[in-house]
Design a protein around this nucleic acid. Sequence first.
DNA 1: CACTTTATTGCAAGTACTTGATACAAAGAT
DNA 2: ATCTTTGTATCAAGTACTTGCAATAAAGTG
Lengths: 107, 107
Amino acid sequence: MTKKNITAHCAVDYAFKRIGGKYKGRILWVIRDGFMRYGELKRAIVGISPKMLTQTLRELEADELVSRKVYLEVPPRVEYSLTSTGEELIPFIKQLRSWGEKKMSQN
Amino acid sequence: MTKKNITAHCAVDYAFKRIGGKYKGRILWVIRDGFMRYGELKRAIVGISPKMLTQTLRELEADELVSRKVYLEVPPRVEYSLTSTGEELIPFIKQLRSWGEKKMSQN
DNA sequence: CACTTTATTGCAAGTACTTGATACAAAGAT
DNA sequence: ATCTTTGTATCAAGTACTTGCAATAAAGTG
């Protein structure tokens, strides 16, 4: 799978296109600590449908933010982890998350 | 106009819902330096349709990230600026932008 | 008076994003 | 043999997001 070709008007646009999407931020955040199996992710990302989770993981993989390791076992076992590029985004998500926490508590 | 009521699963989700959207990041980034008239924004955010710009600005306003000042002149004159909450987001966008610049140049 | 200017608005139309339901493989347990 | 488990695919359907086009106000200019 090749890297998604993103057409952007500026770096801000580019970055938002790469991590934007309904669940991408949450998925990256949940995977941050290490390897996560598909099923663990499904439980962690409350509200996501299996369909959407698979699809979003594929996009993140094509976009080289997440890597996917398949174990040839039955029942299947697939582990996801961040690539180094994905890891670079964690500080940003962390900050954004703090901001979110602060703002949520201000309601 | 009241603040948009965001239902989020976690702080990451919340934050992304608040600044996610095709043009929100770029708009906030462009406004960062001070007051911007509608027309200036339209020229700065290449590719956005007037309709979309207005709509997104309304969302940002309802969400208290941007404030809108109308001058009672003809032809009309409307200036947009960041609220203090909007300003808090600039450092993150800046960081994200640096990441984007770096990644774009790596192609 | 007709024309230009600025910041919108309304509506129809098109495209993109998400979900839901159903189905599958193939080893291990019952 | 049947059931369970895990990760995913397929296809139809629904919802949300974006765009395009036309139209408005009301003062200033020629």
